[in-house]
Amino acid sequence: MRIMSKMRISYIFFAVVLGILLFSELGCPSSKRGRGSNANSLQIKGSDTEVNLVQRLAEAFMARHKGAKIAVTGGGSGTGIAALFNGTTDLANSSRPMKPKELSRAKKKGITPVGVVFAMDALSVITHPSNPLKSLTLEQLGLIYRGKIRNFKEVGGPDLEINLYGRQSNSGTFVYFRDTVLKGDYSPKMKNMPGNSAIVAAVKNDRSGIGYVGIGYVVKGGKKIEGVHIVPLKRGEEVVDPLHRENIRSGKYPLARPLYQYCNGKPTGLLLKFLQFELSEDGQKIVEEEGFYPVTPQYREANKKLGL
């Protein structure tokens, strides 16, 4: 065992140095790990609101283009955008536009994000069926989620304390809802759910729950799902229901929003083909089957400028 004692000190020194190298930021994560070496495969990552829809679109696309491989994963809009910056995805799903901070970060990393709107969402406010609220104004909704209104009776419902369900901070919907409706901070009592379906499941089981989800999670095949009530929102004096297509088309529904996909630079190759498919008639039909709405003319114009 003589050898061990001889070597011990130098080995431990070596170990510590190696440890530092491995774990400290000396070996900075490289952002140059560009994807897209394989012309036949695509990575898509991001928004939980969009994940099922894009999955369906990808399946339909793969059925038409033999040999193409598209992998779609969720994780949240923030996750998708971070992945685009880190070069680990080809396309980032995002249910919100990029923030100015993200745009400047992209610039620093040498990335030119290009945004495409491929579907429309009507963010839907849901409650338990035993609590069918007739309508809410955006202001009331904001007060509810900021924790200022705590009982449904204050907004014309039953005498029930409100249980808030919302998303986690990596969610684009979390940010969209905060900036559009709350214009302030969420109540810390809000339960941060990991996805749209988790919110639907929770509200189904909670008499005093309220939640917000993408319309595709409460409408399937053109029909509202059982077990939740969709609360119409007020715009001025008018009560606007997210289930009517016209309300989204005209932009009357206050929480109608575009669903984005971001890629790095002008799309080419398989990516371009996939985006074209999404915006084609067949693609938009799938969008509607999944409960979302087709792209409105306003965003179609913007897409055209990108050559789509």
């Binding site: 170990a15 440890g19 774990f23 400290s24």
Partner: peptide, 18 residues
């Protein structure tokens, strides 16, 4: 085997330092 045993120390040390 010595290197194998050392590995845990390296990893633990690395995690702690990070």
């Amino acid at each position: 085997f010595f290197v194998c045993a050392l590995m845990t120390v390296v990893i633990l040390g690395g995690i702690f330092i990070m």
